[in-house]
Write a protein that binds this DNA or RNA. Sequence first.
DNA 1: CACTTGACCTGTCCGC
DNA 2: TGCGGACAGGTCAAGT
Length: 272
Amino acid sequence: MPELPEVETIKLGLQKRIVGLKILSFQINSPKSFIGDPDLLQGKKVLNVWRRAKVLGIDLSGNLTLLFHLKMSGQLIWVGDMQEEMPNKHTRVIINFSDESKLYFNDQRRFGWVKVIESLQIPNESFFKKLGPEPLEENFSWQILKTNLLKHPKTPIKVAILDQTVVSGVGNIYACEACFLAQIDPRKKVNSLEDKEFKALFKGIVNSLTSGIKYGGSSKTHFVEAEGKKGFFLRFAFVYGKEKSSCKKCGNKIQKIKLGGRGTYFCSICQV
DNA sequence: CACTTGACCTGTCCGC
DNA sequence: TGCGGACAGGTCAAGT
């Protein structure tokens, strides 16, 4: 499910709701989904909620951090009052807070995980070590993007954007959208791009992600924000999931192909 | 090496 | 309606 904008949307929601709450108890329905010692969490207070790439972090008192990776179908839903819909058959982990509100980690496909670690160990996590730059931070530039992309000169550009060491947080939806905004054929090899195309791609990545956040993320099937509401970015998407529609710019039919094993959408007239 | 494919899971949708 | 196969927001590991 979630790429950078979706995780960011959840982060913004949780920041409003759970900072300051105390963890009363913890329930693990799917041991595979949880890494670490859950007993450590008892009585800890939520200090902060943050995001790096597609990972959400919750800092707790006692120098502990909870990390969440939602992978394809994970959801993180905060519920303030009793609700009949929750938990459901996909609820893997439940955090009970002392004010009786709850945080549900649901994950149909069980690819996602929750992990408790010492906060100081975060930089040593292999997952974080490998990550490329955060695309929405000020120090990210088209030159950095170009340099990182050129480490994979013969890879199709859209596949290279998905590489989390090149730029972190971009997934399949926003990679397709970024190529459209840059008007570049996703199949084009990295080493065939000119500077003006790297610049356009940089803008395309930043703009598609920013737009994703603005519309509360993409809800193809699973994604909901922290209070269970869907995001509506896909209504404004140009190509992702639009294989039965026409290009909003030129009217040509949107193509769907497979690149690097992933569904890839583009306009064969606008993107060259 | 660099790049591709399969595996991890569960569920849905599409074609025959 | 039933059944098999392809496919789904991600990332690793193994294979070529």
